[in-house]
Amino acid sequence: MELKAIRDGFGEELAELGKRESRVVVLSGDLEDSTKAAGFKKEFPLRFFNLGISEQDMIGTAAGMSREGFIPFACSFAVFLTNRAYDQIRITVCYNKANVKLVGSHAGISAGSDGATAQCLEDIAIMRALPNMTVICPADALEVKKAVRAAAEYIGPVYIRTARTASEVITKEETPFAIGKAVTLREGKDLAIIACGIMVPEALRAAVLLEKAGVDAAVINMATIKPLDKQAVVDAAKKCGCIVTAEEHQRNGGLGSAVAEALLASFPVPVEFVAVNDSFGESGEPEELLSKYGLKDVDIARAGASAVKRKKTC
C-alpha cells in the first residue's frame, strides 16, 4: 500500500506541466512550501510569483494574467484561498469567466495540529455555489495529477482541493479521469458509497467491513463535485436503493448536499451523510481528528448499515 499526500502529487505534476505548457504561471500566497507549488518555483522562477500574504490581491492578479493568455495556478491553504478571497473569486474570477485555476491545500480536518483556523471545511459548499466554477476533490496523489492536467486544458475557473496528510493511493495510472465523470471503484448491489478526497480510501475500507457484515457495497469516486455526475448518482440509487456520502467537509452544502439534490430531483432513496457535523475542528493528529469527527471507515460502515436498514423499512 502506497501512502502519499495529495499535495505532493499536485506539486510534482505542476512542475511537469510547467515543462510542457509555457503559458502556465504560478501565484502563491507565501505558502508554496506547504502547498508544494515550490517545485514549480525551483524549475521556473520567472513564471512564479509569491504575491505575499494577500490572497484577495493574488486572485485578482491571477485573473489579470489569465486575461493576457496565461494559465495561472493560484495556490494557498484552501481556507485562505476560498474563504478569505470569496468575493474576488465570485466577481473577478467567476463573473468574468477568468481562466484561473485555484488550488487549495490543507483542506479538511486532516490538516491536523494547526487547528481550526487552518482546516478548511466549507470550501466545497461555497465554491460549488458559484456560477462558472468547476470543483474537483481528487481521491489521491495520482488522481490529482490527472486533475491538474485536465484543469489546465479546460477553459474557465477550476478549484482543486488537496490534502496535507499522507493517504493511500488507490487509483492506478489507467484509472480513467474526466471532469464531471464519476468512477466506480468497487461494484456492489446493496448500498452505494459516494466519496471524494481522502474519504475514498476510507470508503473502500468501509466496503470491506460491510462485506463481512453481509452488505455488498459499491464505492464511487466522485472527484468532480461540480458539475456533478448526476447520472452516476441516479444509476447508483436505482441499482442499490440507498446511498452514503463521505467527505472531509461540513455536512451543510458539500458533496452530500450535491448528491441529495440530484436524488431528490429524480430518484429519492435513503441517504446517510458522513461529514463534519456543523462544527469547527481543533488541533490533533490527522488520524485522531478523523476518528473524533466521525470520518473513518468504521463511521462510513455504520452509516451504510443505517442506510440499508432504512431502505428495508421504506
Binding site: R47, Q56, T61, A62, G64, R67, E68, F70, N96
Partner: peptide, 24 residues
C-alpha cells in the same frame, strides 16, 4: 476589460495585466 461593481478589485487585475505584459 473587466466586469466590476464590487469595489476594490480592479487594481489587482490591472497588476496582473501589467505583470503579463512585462513577462511577454
Amino acid at each position: 476589460e473587466l466586469s466590476t461593481g464590487s469595489l476594490g478589485q480592479g487594481l489587482s487585475f490591472a497588476n496582473g495585466m501589467a505583470l503579463a505584459a512585462k513577462l511577454k
